[in-house]
């Protein structure tokens, strides 16, 4: 019985809702990732949004769209209550389950990857198809692709992204932020770590001696660990060489990725 149930789930997962061709342009959309919200606004579909997550704070008009929660995992009832004809979800395990539940309620869903620069163009084109705004989506996607595939500038500085201090967790090569650093002319000292993020020893950070410690920070103040004695063994921490990156701009891929690259470039050149 359980095996049969499992098989059924597998088969359902195999004919994922995103494989259905777009039949007609969606007019009531719920976006469950800030990146999708930004893209939808950028291609001119912002006024069709009927739901967003609490994290969707850009553009300003996005804040006028009713929030359906933090989206991790999605609150199915809150989403369904907005009577959407399309729900756009980030492609991850818990969201696959949520998408199945929404489909069962007769709501069309689409799961899109949004982990790296390469995902921007395809996701934008797909959202263009779903909203019938192919042309504007195509021009945005082309700009994004040219940023993604442009030759990397020679690195002018080394950098380590620290996302948590105890235990120290850094950003590895397989992440959006590491790509962003490369595009801005910085070398991620942990580019030998293939995973998007990993726990490392403090001594490894100290020994690799990055010129800059980058942290996502909306407050604009140095992180608390800057004052801890053991972190002062890292020269960049001792000398206060922090790059404080606002999370809304730097923490997500989207139409403003090019702006993020430019901003980081300017910071590195200081």
């Amino acid at each position: 019985m359980i095996r049969r149930l499992f098989l059924a789930v597998l088969m359902l997962a195999a004919c994922r809702p995103s494989d259905h061709p777009a039949v007609q342009a969606s007019n009531r959309i719920v976006s469950l990732l800030p990146s999708f919200t930004e893209i939808l606004f950028a291609i001119g579909a912002g006024d069709r949004l009927v739901g967003r997550t609490t994290w969707c704070d850009y553009p300003d008009a996005a804040r006028d769209v009713p929030s359906v929660g933090d989206g991790m995992p999605p609150n199915i009832e809150a989403v369904a209550a907005t009577k959407p004809d399309l729900v756009v979800l980030y492609n991850s395990g818990p969201n696959v389950t949520a998408a199945l539940q929404l489909e069962r309620l007769g709501i069309r869903t689409v799961l899109l990857d949004m982990n790296r620069f390469e995902d921007l163009g395809p996701a934008t084109r797909r959202l263009g198809q779903l909203t019938g705004l192919e042309q504007r989506a195509e021009s945005l996607a082309t700009t994004m692709d040219s940023l993604t595939y442009r030759p990397l500038p020679p690195p002018i500085a080394s950098i380590a992204f620290v996302v948590w201090d105890n235990p120290p967790i850094i950003i590895g090569a397989g992440s959006y932020l590491s790509q962003l650093a490369n595009l801005a002319g910085a070398r991620n000292v942990f580019d030998d770590v293939a995973a998007p993020s990993a726990q490392v020893s403090l001594e490894t950070i100290a020994a690799r001696n990055p010129r800059w410690i980058a942290v996502l920070s909306d407050s604009g103040t140095a992180p608390a660990f800057a004052k801890r004695r053991e972190w002062r063994a890292v020269p960049a921490v001792r000398d206060g060489r922090f790059l404080l990156l606002p999370g809304s701009l730097f923490g997500r891929p989207g139409p403003r990725s090019a702006e993020a690259v430019r901003r980081l470039q300017a910071m590195l050149g200081r």
């Binding site: 235990p167 942990f190 030998d192 995973a195 990993a198 726990q199 490392v200 020893s201 690799r208």
Partner: peptide, 11 residues
């Protein structure tokens, strides 16, 4: 924990 999977670290 610090050395076997360096540069990563195990809990």
């Amino acid at each position: 924990a610090r050395t076997v999977v360096a540069p990563r670290e195990l809990p």
